[in-house]
Every structure is written in C-alpha cells, then in structure tokens.
Simulated scan of single mutants.
Amino acid sequence: MGSIPTLPGLVSTMIETPRLKMHVLLRGPSDGVPVLLIHGNASSSTFWEETMLALPLGYRAIAPDLRGYGDTEDKLIDATRGCMDWVNDLLDLMDVMGYARFHVAGHSLGGSVVWAMLAAAPERILTATVIAPGSPFGFGGTKDIQGTPCAPDFAGSGAGIVNPEFARLIAEGYRGSEFQAAPRNVMNSFYWKPPFRHPREEALLSGVLSEKIGPNKYPGDAVPSPHWPGVAPGKWGPANAISPKYVGDSVQRMLTAPTKPPILWVRGSDDPIVGDMSLFNMGTLGKLGVVPGWPGDEVHPPQPMVGQTRYVLEQYRANGGSFREEVIPDTGHSPHMEKPHIFDPLFHAHLQSV
C-alpha cells in the first residue's frame, strides 16, 4: 500500500522487479489492454488518478512511482545513462506483470522517459502519448531547434539550475505557502494555469513532497563551469538525467528505429515550464534579467523547447512515423488534469486507433 490515500476504484500495491520494488496504482482487469502512465518530476503516480478512472472499459491502467519518487524503493538514478534507469525499471515492471506490448503516456519528465523508451524499445509500444514533455534534446543548455549545446559542458542544464530552496522545503515536508519556493505555491503557480486549483490539492501536494531529496538524489550533483551561468550537470539524480549531456543519441535512435508507434503530443497553450520561453530555463531567466551576467541570445538564448519537439516529430513523420499535435487553450503544464473533458477524448481516441 502507498502512503497517499487513493480515490475509490484504484488498487495501490508493491511489485517486486529484478531492479527494485515499485509502488504501482492499478485499475481495470488484469487481462485488459495495458496503459503505462509515467508521472513527471516533483510528482508521483497520484497525479494520474482521474485519468485512470476515466479510461474506457477493457483497459488496464498502470501508474508506477518512478525511481526517486513516491513509495518506490529508494535507489539512486545514474544520470550518465540519461533516462535509461527509468526505462529499464519500467520495462522490467511490464515483464513481471506479463505485458509484452502496451500503450504508454508520459507527463513532463515522464514525456522525456517516453522519448527514451521510443529509442530503446519501440517494438513494445502500441501508442505513445506525451503531455507537456521535456524536449527530446533534454532540458536546458541548448540553443536552436536542432538541439545545439550552448556550451561544450552543457552549462545551464542539470541539478545546478534547480532552486535549492524548493528542494529543501520538499525535504522538510513543508505544506505551507509562506515562501515563494514552497512546493504548494510552485504547484499552484506552475503545474497549472492560475486560478485553477485541483480538488485533490492535498493528495497531490503529498505526491510532490514524496520526491527523494539528498546527496546524489534530487536535485543531484553539479559541477562548476567556466560558461554562463557557471554550473554544469553532475552524474546523479533526476535533474541531471534529463540534461542534454546525457540524453545523447536517443533522438537519432528514435528516428532510425524500424518500429515507429503513433505519437499524440498534447500541450497547454500557456505552459510556463515547457515552452519556448520557459520560466525554468536559464536562457529565459537571463534574458528577463532575473539571472545576472546573461551572455545574450547568440550564446545562450531561451531554449526553443516546443520548436525542438516539433522539429523532431516532423522528422519522425518524414521517416515513416506519425504524430498529432494538440494544443489545449487557456491551459498550463498539466492539460490532462486541468481540462480532462478535452484531454480524455483525445487520449482515448489515440488508444483506440490501433
């Protein structure tokens, strides 16, 4: 059983895999068509509950807590493998559960995991859905739609760009709203578009607070850099795992894979986290004057995250795959939670398309 109470109709369980013991939420018949749901950073499986309950009959919803999050066994994330620790954990989970092929959906960092899975094991995926996904080239430290690094050491990406106050308050289990970096404030200001408040705010906040904090955990280690903003990715933890330094050749592998599952890309029109002017990106913050010493658009512009994703998906299509982009208006970073009446029909139609 997980530590966060769930909505009626969901089963919370622990599943032992060869790599680690995973906490998983389940719904639907065990012989149903499997749908693997991968949560984002500073969140947990609880962020999928309404999506799970809305799935049509005949589907089996599977929402694990990723390594480093929730009630899953606390093991370190080797960031030098990019998202592959998570991919291997999830493929093992599906093996143990007896699912050779499955649908997969990922939100935010979970979308980054989906890109890596499309590169590593596309033959196992029936359809892929990415919701406000991190750029296929990684988060931070790149300057154009082709994913060219701003600096040779990928400065401006990784754990060093995470607000240490946010991580400290998660570690303390802080549920208040007194500080700007309070997890509750970050969730309500950035995960969705204000004034939206989620009816399960307390359970979701518990999900945010479930992230494992500490040396080599979240946010991870960082190294000093001679390049602006003076910090480059280290080797451990989730924030480093999504750095373009380690995402490596996954884009090329995804584009050249013989199997190309259809992709649905859903994003909110007003996403402050993943966008071409992301407020979590050093280039944007430098340009806005928030982070001093910005070297200018030539050297370190705001990362064109949406442009990069579209560029990669258009190549995916040109190489024989297919994708559909859906922009949900007046919506922030979590369209599946803010506008389920729009998201769910799109998602269900995509699942039923194969």
Rank of each mutant, 00 (worst) to 15 (best):
T284A: 12
A119T: 04
R267P: 00
P329W: 02
P272S: 10
R81Y: 08
G332C: 04
T13A: 15
K339W: 01
P340R: 12
L205D: 03
V113Y: 10
T6W: 00
R124P: 13
L204W: 12
R175L: 07
K193R: 15
P164S: 11
P64T: 09
G332E: 03
F196D: 03
R175E: 15
M94D: 11
S353W: 00
K287L: 11
Y311P: 02
K212Y: 06
M337S: 15
L255T: 08
A116G: 14
W192L: 09
G158H: 06
K260F: 01
V35K: 14
H336D: 09
P302I: 02
T46L: 10
L313E: 08
P292V: 05
I4E: 03
G293P: 00
G268I: 02
T284G: 12
V231F: 02
G307Y: 02
V11T: 15
M187T: 06
H198Q: 08
A318W: 04
W48P: 00
I213N: 01
H333T: 07
H336C: 12
S177Q: 10
F47A: 15
T129R: 08
P64C: 11
E325I: 11
T284C: 13
L209G: 00
R197M: 12
Q146K: 11
A116T: 04
A151Q: 03
D270F: 07
G106W: 11
Q146C: 05
P335A: 02
K75Y: 04
A116V: 00
I38P: 00
V251M: 02
L285H: 01
H39G: 09
M52Y: 03
A349Y: 06
F47I: 10
A61N: 05
W192H: 12
K21L: 05
L57C: 09
C83N: 14
M14Q: 12
P195Q: 03
G110Y: 07
D330G: 05
P261R: 09
L55Y: 09
V24W: 01
G140L: 12
A155D: 04
S12R: 08
H336Y: 13
K235I: 07
P329A: 13
E165M: 08
G98M: 11
I328P: 13
G110K: 02
S177T: 14
L53A: 06
A61W: 05
K287A: 15
V290M: 11
F137S: 09
V231E: 01
V104M: 13
F102W: 13
R197K: 14
E16V: 10
H300G: 01
G286S: 06
G234D: 02
T46A: 15
I273Y: 12
